[in-house]
Structures are given as structure tokens and as C-alpha cells.
Design a protein around this nucleic acid. Structure first.
Lengths: 144, 144
DNA sequence: TCTAATGTCTCTAGCAACTATAGGTTCAAG
DNA sequence: CTTGAACCTATAGTTGCTAGAGACATTAGA
């Protein structure tokens, strides 16, 4: 049986995050020690590893909830899990192409920077006047 | 003079977002009509265009605040603006490489999916048991 | 065995960067 | 002059956590 701290180091998920996952119902409430501290077994550890990995792959918690409910029910079709992963792949690819356009533009801004005063700074100018420089439409803001 | 709605369509920034930017001090409080409605001039429009464009490039609002204060002071050196853009470029590149690792992983998951039942679905397996399949370390979760 | 340090508990509030809702006011068209 | 869209303020909600306060539990060392 693992305390929450040991589970945290074992899985790489921080302690408050584990409690948060429990709070939102992603992890079931674990056993408690006599002193009311959480105690986790192997299945909780596996489940949390699954969650962490899915988060690293960019799945939102709602999708992870769906995936967990699928894996809790192993006789159902794989198609649903497949669809979730497929949608995620589409989203990831779109994100990559947007970020590449961003990269190009930032590179150009920096290359053209005159290293003088703000008055003739390309960075400021480019941001102030989109039409002067941009080839691509950036779309929605990127969260970086 | 533009009302907030016209400013919103002119710049592509939503009305509540404009008010939010004013609230956090990114935009100065504009003039008001006799009926207490906001009225914007050209300089407000320019400033908001600048903000929108910087957001599209992924600059966080704090960085935009810095860039705006720099551009208010055109005699200063360009170096600070350059540094902000450079940091942004580094962040964007890191994000791209992480997303590429993600893409590879999702592709493999989908290819390996036997399209049978969950019991032999690689999507679940890959997420549950990292060591079995991953070549790369994904790093921190991506927000997709 | 006592004690000090660490770990854990609950609860609340905060972060980015908005978005949505409620309940009211103002404006422009017909 | 009325109707409906656009506007106002203020508050609360979103996602996925993270940080803090103040109290209890556990453990390692003297």
C-alpha cells in the first residue's frame, strides 16, 4: 500500500494533482489508514499511470474519462477508443502546422530586427501592422 | 469613433475580451458617450490590433504588456523587444518538437489497433503501459 | 520515549485568458 | 414611439491544475 506521496513519486503525478483527480471523479476514493490518510494499491497506480500518460499525449481530461470508462468495460468495441485517439491525432497535426507558421514568422521578425531603437524595431512594427509581413493566417491564439 | 461592437468586428477581438483587456489594464479606459458607452479612436484600434496579433503569435498577455510599454517609448533600444520575441521562438520550437513526438505515438497507437475488442486494443494498452511502446519522453502535458 | 521534521489532511483561493449569464440601459430603425 | 439589437456592470464558470492556511499523522533520530 502506497501513501499519496509515494504514489506521486511512483507515477510522476504531483500530490495535489492526485487529490484533484479524485475530486473530479477521475480516480476512485482510495482506502484510508487509521489516521485518515489515503492508501493506494496497484490498481490505483495503474489507473493513474494511464491518466498521466494520456495527459502527456494531450488528451483532455474528458477524453481520458471516456477512455477509462472504455477500459473498465473490456468487451466493448475498440472503435470508440480508436475514434478518440484519431480525433486527437487530427488536433495534434493541426496544432503542429499552426506552430510551424508561427515559428517562421517569429524567425523572420528576429532576422529583420535592425538592433537599433524601438522606432525601427521590426518586432514592434510587425506586431502593429499585420499586412506588412504575414503570409499566413495564424488563426486562434496559441497557448504557449 | 467606434463603439465596442464595431471595434470588435474591425479587429477580430470579441466584445467581452476587449472589456477584459481594459479591466486588466492592457487597454486604457476609453472615452464614453453621453449614455456611458465606450467610444474608441484610431489609437485604441491600433493598440488592440497589436495585442491581437501578438496573441495569435502566442505571446502571453504579460509579454504583450511589456511589448506595449516598449513601443510607447520609441527611443529605447530594440534589444528588449528582440529578447521577448526570441523567448517566444524558443517556446514555440519546444512545443513543436513535443507535439511531433505525440503525433508519432498516436500514429503508432492507431496502426497497432487491432480493431477488435478493448481487450487487445493497443490504444488502451499503450496508454496503460508506457514502457511497452514509447520511444520518446513526452514531457509535460500538452494543452490541445 | 520524546521530539522535531516531514508528510498528510481539508478547505479555500488563485493562475491564464477568457466566456457566459443576469438584469438592466441606450441606441437606431421603422 | 416602439421594438429589438447593442450596450452596460457584476458575477460566476471554464480547464487543469497550483499554492496557501492551519491542523493532524507518521517517522527518524537523540
Amino acid at each position: 500500500m502506497l501513501t499519496i506521496g509515494r504514489l506521486a513519486t511512483a507515477t510522476g503525478v504531483k500530490v495535489p494533482t492526485i487529490r484533484y483527480y479524485e475530486q473530479i471523479g477521475l480516480l476512485p476514493p482510495p482506502e484510508r489508514s487509521m489516521g485518515n490518510q489515503r492508501l493506494y494499491g496497484q490498481s490505483a497506480r495503474d489507473r493513474l499511470t494511464f491518466v498521466r500518460h494520456a495527459r502527456e499525449l494531450g488528451f483532455p481530461l474528458e477524453a481520458i474519462r471516456d477512455l477509462l470508462s472504455l477500459s473498465d468495460d473490456p468487451d466493448r468495441s475498440c472503435a470508440a477508443a480508436d475514434a478518440i485517439a484519431r480525433a486527437q491525432l487530427v488536433a495534434v497535426r493541426a496544432r503542429i502546422s499552426r506552430l510551424r507558421a508561427l515559428e517562421t514568422e517569429l524567425e523572420r521578425m528576429l532576422v529583420q530586427c535592425a538592433h537599433g531603437t524601438i522606432a525601427d524595431c521590426r518586432v514592434i512594427e510587425v506586431l502593429g501592422d499585420h499586412a506588412h509581413c504575414c503570409e499566413s493566417d495564424h488563426g486562434a491564439p496559441e497557448t504557449v
